[in-house]
Design a protein around this nucleic acid. Sequence first.
RNA 1: GCCUCGGUAGCUCAGUUGGAUAGAGCAACGGUUUUCUAAACCGUGGGUCAGGGGUUCGAAUCCCUUCCGGGGUACCA
Length: 589
Amino acid sequence: MNFIASLTVQAIKDLYQVKVDEKSVNLQETRKEFEGQVTIVTFPFTKYSKKSPEQTGSEIGDYLVAHAAEIASYNVIKGFLNLSLTDSFWLQLLDTEISKPDFGEIPKNGKRVMVEYSSPNTNKPLHLGHVRNNLLGFSVAAILEAAGYEVIKTNLVNDRGIHICKSMLAWEKYGKGETPESAGLKGDKLVGNYYVLFDKEYKKEVDLLKAAGKSEEEAKREAPLMLQAQEMLRQWEAGDDEVIDLWKRMNSWVYDGFEETYEKMGITFDKVYYESNTYLLGKDIIEEGLSKGVFFRKEDNSVWIDLTADGLDQKLVLRGDGTSVYITQDLGTAQLKYDDYRMDNSIYVVGNEQDYHFKVLFLILKKLGKSWAEGLYHLSYGMVDLPSGKMKSREGTVVDADDLMAEMIDTAKLRTEELGKVDDFSEEEKGGLYEMIGLGALKYFLLKVEPKKRLLFDPNESIDFQGHTGPFIQYTHARIKSVLTKGNYGTTPFSVQPMSLEASERDLIKELAKFTDIVKGAAADYSPAVIANYVYEVAKLYNKFYHEVSILKAEEKSLKEFRLNLSAATATVIQKAMRLLGIQVPERM
RNA sequence: GCCUCGGUAGCUCAGUUGGAUAGAGCAACGGUUUUCUAAACCGUGGGUCAGGGGUUCGAAUCCCUUCCGGGGUACCA
């Protein structure tokens, strides 16, 4: 529809002898209470025409109708010029663009982008917060790929550190050799239990010390369990065989558990980094920064950067004893990733509690003169809160990822059985469908909200399966597939004759036509929510169309064939859009 | 304190580079099935876009300010 903007520019030039930029032509969809499909806002042009908005609109409208065969008529209301495009224009749009197999796929742009997400700790199972992270990362990766990027999906696993030693220590002291097999528990769950147990026992020790007259801080610092965990970390860093063996053993349990969860969730990675391999990185960057004068060393030997000129604080980048802090590792890891892949952009999917950290990280890399630092982006998302507030692993107030998925699938089963539409399915088909619907509901629920907004999840209120939901969209797809089958629709569209269109048909074509721009917009904003809200709109318009006209019993053969073409194109857009969200759509439900 | 992100219907959320009378879903109420899948469709009610000021032909959107909520401000990650 770009021709309208450029023709309007031409109109203003011919009518008022003023050359305006194409971007100053404000095109929007005509609101449904007015006649037409495309609206030009003409207020800005009155300063060139020196006439009333109404008159200006009429003059431009006359010009457009005279110069474009696609524009059938117009009407003017105040500063709004509403254009009606011809039915053959819409038909052709469906034919030549929307029905193409590669519709919505943007040509390769030759750029490479890395998306890092998930990044779990190996001391506890994944919870709802991780689910949001995983779905966001996976979806953004799919969207960027559709937008023409080469995408590398990475996971930086936090597999070492004091928190890992805590669960190791608790298992060693109280575990009596328990294994996932002996306990009948997923490995990540088992290890998580020991992490919680550590905390429980530790608190007891702290209380005892406090009762003996120690201050809170002293007690926390001097509790035997804490000292032992710290000792274990030192042994780990020294490469102590026994500690390393235990670490490997327990981590492998956790990885087995994570693997299961990722698979259920439908999440994959191209490259996994482990912090145990990267935690020593970054020290040479510290040297680099010191020699470039970006960092400075204090008397106690610690290394800092002064960011007060940028409105931030002074930040420590290396401890006085020469060991790394979080940002030291991240500096090194950023360099490692770039050396490995030479990507143009790198996206970090990390919660908004780390906004400040990433601001500092990117700023430091820029100050160090890293050319690639410009391409770094923190995709910050809001926390998932419960009605009671934050989820806390140690307090057991978390919504477990596996449990949640299982509940959703159960609910899908229940709902589907009530409706009784798939009684002829095999048990295996049923299982697949319940999973598709249950996870579709969950994923859609989490992805339809703008990433940066915080999300409230009430475990007592089940996620809907009706209305603005994943299953609604999945249902629409299944419905279309059913019609296509009954209408003997093949793999390619029918060729149809010109005809006049119903409003519901025009509206649907218009919506479908937006898909490519929607993908571009979602990629530019790193926002699956844009896709989610769009595909809902498509499904809604299809259901309206489906309800208002008869497809298989259309008055004429060519009308029926056109409606089948339109249905097929809709199914494809729904399927493609949902795939960008990591949601599958069924043939029947 | 300072930095930062939010605040739109009872609830959960949309709302493009500023555009027409601010939209959906859920919940409530009413209607639609001898017709292609009723997980659907149609209708009714529901709003001080947190408050105030400013910018202009026009502000939920941009600027200032106040209030409320989240997060951050560690030699934690």
